[in-house]
Write a protein that binds this DNA or RNA. Structure first.
Lengths: 127, 127
DNA sequence: CGGAATCCAGACCGATACTG
DNA sequence: CAGTATCGGTCTGGATTCCG
């Protein structure tokens, strides 16, 4: 992952690179428009496909389906199928998904704060 | 933003919706492949355009240019132009960008941890 | 209900060339 | 150096239809 050229970098640049790589790794796994939202939607209980689609505004069935597959592949969620009629499929967070709690906490706090700040600057512009 | 229908939701659903909205707001502002990485790259000092492009692997000039514009518009960075010859342009984090420290800290810690976990599971698969 | 398959328009993105 | 302009390909994502 690291190149020989890195040996020529200043210490602070190396640290910066390390941070950059860590953030890049994180975004690779949970980046994109939807993954974190799906995880949040599953945080207070298991949900079924259509529940998720209703809860997460703007997501299409195809995209939701794809995202759920990827999340399952990467070990963030479990898929439980009940072969009743009609079929019921339930999605459940894995234990590993809980390691994201810190990230989600930070992100949702920041999001709340940011929304307020945007509102403020809207008022300024009108006045 | 909230609809009347929300009055019919159970309390835990409302909380879930609130979280969902907060995360959605955050992702709207700092989502995407590059914005957070650019901010990280600027965290230990101002950088010029080409420095950023070299530091952030895989980003093209066009995309970097667009992202920088958006980040400036949304108040995360400042653009300083020195009209020497050749022209030098420097990008600098705003104070507001520092409100992201918590998010970035959480994200980079998680990214580091996650990379280790992925490595482990790779070993498992080979064995 | 929970998807998969298909079709299709538009966004996105890289490469290249060019400007001040 | 710090971008912009243009072109062409890919990839995303919506709408619709169909299946178990």
């Amino acid at each position: 992952m690291s190149k020989l050229k890195d040996n020529n970098l200043l210490p602070q640049d190396q640290q910066c690179k390390a941070r950059l790589n860590a953030v890049a790794d994180a975004l690779y796994a949970i980046g994109g428009k939807w993954k974190l939202r799906i995880i949040v939607a599953l945080m207070d209980g298991n949900r079924r496909f259509n529940e998720l689609q209703r809860l997460i505004e703007g997501i299409s069935a195809k995209v939701l389906s794809n995202e759920l597959k990827e999340l399952e592949l990467n070990g963030f969620i479990k898929r439980n199928v009940f072969t009743s009629t009609p079929v019921v499929v339930e999605y459940e967070l894995s234990e590993y998904a809980e390691t994201l709690n810190g990230v989600l906490q930070a992100l949702s706090e920041w999001g709340t704060m940011h929304r307020e700040k945007v509102k403020e600057s809207m008022k300024q512009e009108i006045a």
